[in-house]
Structures are given as structure tokens and as C-alpha cells.
Design a protein around this nucleic acid. Structure first.
Lengths: 210, 210
DNA sequence: TAGGTGAATGAACGATCGTTCACTGGAAGA
DNA sequence: TCTTCCAGTGAACGATCGTTCATTCACCTA
């Protein structure tokens, strides 16, 4: 029963993170109290402070670990992919897929930046800028090579990030459309937005067939 | 001095709306207190209740009047415009332009839906759905006519709305790019995203010139 | 000039906020 | 078996929350 004990061993810290993540995403940082989080975990409010120094640190921790995971996964997804077109497609595919898998993490990282106090804001905003910068670089490279037809690369990068991230706002598991279809739609919109035609021929191109 | 008196006559209700709008947009509904709003207006907190029944009603009022204005302006912008391509361009041009003019209103209407209590939520969400529906109809019509190359029209509509609305997140007056340039970039991205090439020839097409 | 009216005040309310802390209980190491 | 020690408790703190209300004030009408 030793491994069982290890498996079942309560991971209060992890549960606090998970519940706080969900609640912050649902209602917003300011609208969630430490008592709400404690109740969701199944402890009293004092217990949280055995694991996190403050509500603010809890938020910063959630955002930091999320952004570190995003940057790691993002670098892995683009590693070895060469050329602006292929890299843009890989970026879009990764971004939407990751956001479908971790909607709450992403939503918080985008929405609650303003809830961070200056120090945490600077650190976490720098990580976000790094991510945005890689997309901007792809777009600038493609435009310089004459492959993309876009206006300002920085504007287009922000436009695409907003579009791709927006999937978290409406997507719900078990809805009308499956994950793969949604990703393909967003990838298509992304590639076409820079003036490309579809990556591959016209399979499943038709939009009106049921 | 009569007209002067009328002109200078204090419009406390209007000032409360304006300050609340700005503060809600900056910090979020839950993070702004009635005392914060009162201080911004220059009155004590009790005075607000002479004009609004509650904080919740104040939020609902802001969102309702904004959405009514958007729907009115949107219908005017699309009136008489025929054909999916022209209508899509008009939609994108209107949406970005309006959002550049009223970023705080728009930001609140998108972000604070979850802060509304059930009744207000239903009413205001219905208005938002109406707006989204007109874009979805344009896309479906264009796809059915074989003009647009898109996946699911509902997905693409949400993708475009997220992209176009995202301009409010980063745009600041007096920045590097002027209003007209930004609008053109977003219009181009929108039209190209459905598989169209640029609306008009190649003037100011180059993306790398300074 | 007297009376009426709507807006602003400022103190107060009960509730809830983030946070602290002396304590308790139970499992791990000696 | 005894000791140690961390995690959890539950009450309490000062502050702040949305809201109320008796009162005061300034202005319009008659």
C-alpha cells in the first residue's frame, strides 16, 4: 500500500492551484475570495497561507507556471520547422491546440495581467512579449521575402494572436465541432490572412456541405 | 447667460457614467468601488445612488447604452451595401473604426458580461448575439456563393470578431501608427482571411517600407 | 420673498475582504 | 514509544465593501 499511499497522498498545494485557476477564470481575480478558493479545495481559509504567501503570489504563480509551460511547448512545436509559411502554420496549429487544452490558464494570463502588482506584471509581461515577438518575427520575415501580403507586422501579429486566443472564449468540450475541425479552421484563417491560399489542395474546402 | 448656464449645468449622471466606464475598463468591475467612482467624479459615494439604483444597474446601463449605439451605428454603416464582399469589408471597417473610437465601452461589453446578474446578462447577451449573427450571415452567404474559402461560418465569425475587437487591447492614441493605417491593416487581414486578395490593386501594399 | 424640490452630504450599517496567529492533531524519524 | 514538525483549524484583526438615510444645501417657481 506504499505506492498507493503516495498516489493518494493529498497534494493540497496542487489542489489550491487548480481550484484558484478555475475560479479566477470563471469570475475574475478580484471577484474570488480566499474563502471561495478554500471552500472549493475543502479546507479553511487559513490553510492556503501554508502554501502561498498571499492571494497576489497565488495569481503570479499561476501565470508564471502557465507562461513557462507555453514557452517551452511553443519552442518544441517550432523546433526544426523552417521557412515563414511552415512556421506560421506550425505557430497557429500549436497556439490553438494549446489553448483548447488549457483554456483557463490562457484566459487568466490574458485577462488578469492588470491584476498583477508592478513587479509581477513586469516579469510576466516580458514573457508574453517574448511569445508575441516570435510571431512578429515570422510575419516580418515572410513579408520581407515577399511571401506574405500584410500591413504592419506588429499589427498583424496582435490581430492574429487575438483571433487565435479568442477560441478560449467560446469553445466548450462536447460542442458541435470537434477539436481537429476547429484547429483547421483557425489555421486556414491564419494562413489566408497573410495572403496565402490553402496549404494543401482543396480537400474539405467546401464550407456549405453538412 | 442663460444658454451659458445650460451649457455649464452639471451633468452628474453623465459624469458618473463616464468615470465608471473608464474605471471599469481599467481595473475591472469587481476591482472598482463606488467610492472610487465617486472620488473620480468629485462627489461622495452617497450621491451616486441619486442617479443609479446600484452598482449592478450602473454596469448594466453602461453596457446597454453602448450596445444600442453599436447596433445603430452598425446598421447605418451596412445600410445599402450589397454583396458579401462589400458587406464584409464594410463590417470590418466599421467595427475597427468604432472600437478605436470607443475602446473602453467595447472592452467592458466584452469583458464584464460575466459580472452581470442573470437578468441583465440575458438581455445584453442577446444584443451581442444579434451583432455576431450579422457577421455570420455575411460569411455564410459568401461561402454559399463560392466567394469565400472558409471553414465553419460560426467559427470564422468568432475568429474575426476576436481579431477585430482585439485592437482595443493594445491601441493607444498618439502611438506609432495612425488610425487609418490600422484600419486598413485589419480590413486587409479580414478580407484575406476568407481567401480574397486585396480589395483594390496594390497601392500601399508593401509591408517593409518605413 | 416664501415654499418646494432634487441633489449632495457624511455618518453609519452589516457583510465580507485579505491576512494573522495561537492551537491542535497526526504522521514520520529517532 | 517518544519526539518533532508541518499542515490544518477557527477565531479574530482592521480595512473596505455596497448600500441606506436623516439632514443640509442650492436653485427654480410662484
Amino acid at each position: 500500500m506504499n505506492s498507493d499511499a503516495n498516489t493518494r497522498r493529498k497534494d493540497t498545494r496542487g489542489e489550491i492551484s487548480g481550484c484558484a485557476l478555475r475560479l479566477f477564470a470563471e469570475r475574475g481575480y478580484a471577484a474570488v475570495s480566499m474563502r471561495d478558493i478554500a471552500e472549493a479545495v475543502g479546507v479553511r481559509q487559513g490553510a492556503i497561507y501554508n502554501h502561498f504567501a498571499s492571494k497576489q503570489e497565488l495569481l503570479a504563480e499561476l501565470m508564471t507556471s502557465h507562461l513557462e509551460a507555453v514557452l517551452r511547448a511553443h519552442e518544441a512545436a517550432l523546433a526544426g520547422v523552417a521557412g515563414p509559411v511552415a512556421r506560421l502554420e506550425a505557430f497557429a496549429r500549436f497556439h490553438v491546440g494549446y489553448h483548447l487544452d488549457y483554456p483557463a490558464d490562457v484566459f487568466i494570463a490574458y485577462m488578469e495581467l492588470r491584476s498583477l502588482e508592478p513587479e509581477g506584471f513586469r516579469r510576466i509581461n516580458a514573457m508574453r512579449s517574448r511569445y508575441e515577438g516570435t510571431l512578429r518575427a515570422i510575419l516580418a520575415e515572410g513579408a520581407a521575402a515577399g511571401l506574405f501580403s500584410i500591413g504592419d507586422p506588429a499589427v498583424h501579429a496582435r490581430a492574429l494572436l487575438a483571433m487565435l486566443t479568442g477560441v478560449t472564449v467560446w469553445y466548450r468540450e462536447g460542442g458541435r465541432l470537434d477539436r481537429a475541425t476547429i484547429i483547421e479552421d483557425y489555421v486556414r484563417a491564419t494562413l489566408q490572412s497573410v495572403g496565402l491560399r490553402m496549404p494543401r489542395g482543396g480537400d474539405k474546402e467546401c464550407s456549405t456541405q453538412p
